[in-house]
Design a protein around this nucleic acid. Sequence first.
DNA 1: TCAAAATTAATAGTATTACTATGATAATAT
DNA 2: ATATTATCATAGTAATACTATTAATTTTGA
Lengths: 226, 226
Amino acid sequence: MDELLQTVRIQINEKIYIKDPESSNLGKRIIEESIIMIYEIGFESFTFKKLGERIKSNESSIYRYFENKHKLLLYLTSWYWGWLEYQLVFTTNGMADPTKKLRKAIEILTKSTEEDSAYSHINEVFLNKIVINENSKSYLTQEVDAENKDGYFVIYQRLVKRLSTMITAVNSDFLYPASLASTILEGSLHQHFLKDHFASLTDCHENNHPTQYFTQLVFSTLQNTP
Amino acid sequence: MDELLQTVRIQINEKIYIKDPESSNLGKRIIEESIIMIYEIGFESFTFKKLGERIKSNESSIYRYFENKHKLLLYLTSWYWGWLEYQLVFTTNGMADPTKKLRKAIEILTKSTEEDSAYSHINEVFLNKIVINENSKSYLTQEVDAENKDGYFVIYQRLVKRLSTMITAVNSDFLYPASLASTILEGSLHQHFLKDHFASLTDCHENNHPTQYFTQLVFSTLQNTP
DNA sequence: TCAAAATTAATAGTATTACTATGATAATAT
DNA sequence: ATATTATCATAGTAATACTATTAATTTTGA
């Protein structure tokens, strides 16, 4: 990624954490190691006690940063979507041709994640795997409406809206820009998951990437609107 | 639904349960009330102890039917997909025109659920809500590969395959029939969820149903293949 | 019909989780 | 140098997700 990105901080809604994990060494270790640990054992089995042991710190110290592990997950997924959003905006900014722009956007939002050295304590490849496996658990809860009211999902919503706007720019007659945008984002995670666990339910594999599938889906739809 | 359906039983993989809940009155009450309870309080807060109190039975008796609440969820989602599959096969069977057939299939698989009196102890409307909210939790686990090997997801896979085949029947050049089929099924649940909780991320609402969105998406894509 | 078998209920118990509380120690800031 | 803040260690609680055991009830089939 561009060097400019090195100075950019992903801004997370302050209500998600108690103390900003970016503000201390312990906080960064919590983020760094929780990503690895959730990747390894899954969100269900992950506990603050285990994380404390791993980072050689104390369970209660982690509770000073996050109210509970659900909030930590919200932090991680928000960070991921913010990171993707930045890449999207940075890369497509200044592109004049709406079609090329949308094509690029789909590429960024559906490709497999590569390491980004700008954030030394965050392993983006693992984080992407976490998002594939755990993202939906962050909103499929009884508290979703209250948390949504508190702005816990604003980054994700902004991202969908950006993509939706790009879709409309290509074809303003298309009636479902928001639905198509949300389908691309969730659908991409789903296709990546299927690729790894239910190969027969997808046509995406090594040489046939979700990017190609969604690109074809989107453009043939937009070219073919009544 | 047709009266014929009244005699049809949805066959669930026997490994999912310890004792078949269809085989006793208590088993049916477990299914009936767990659907209502998970609908009301969500899967996270749902416990066998609470269910026991509700059905005036004992926690340990429920454990005679299901190893844990995850298995119960697998049972409920399998039943739902089996029920949908039956409607799909029954309704589209004998339809000669592949396009009409696919159109009908999308309608069945993406519409809001209506009550089906054939299964008196199962509230299909609530079950549909459960599937919208909890389905992904049934496979987004560390155990997914092992459970898949044991055939816990066969009904869902068969359903995707049926839809995939119908897509290919309309356009055999289309490269992503399985991906499109899985996108329709998961995407439909997602659009229904967004409709209820993130209205700005979808164009589907009262008068603009997911069915219309997916119908347009699918047919414009299939008409426009290189 | 009645005894054996199967099912269900009641009670108790365990390990783990998801926290909260408190006091002690270490780091840092003024 | 001292006050403030951050971290650590320990302990404790209520709830969860079970398992085990025994008793009561229902079903069944000889």
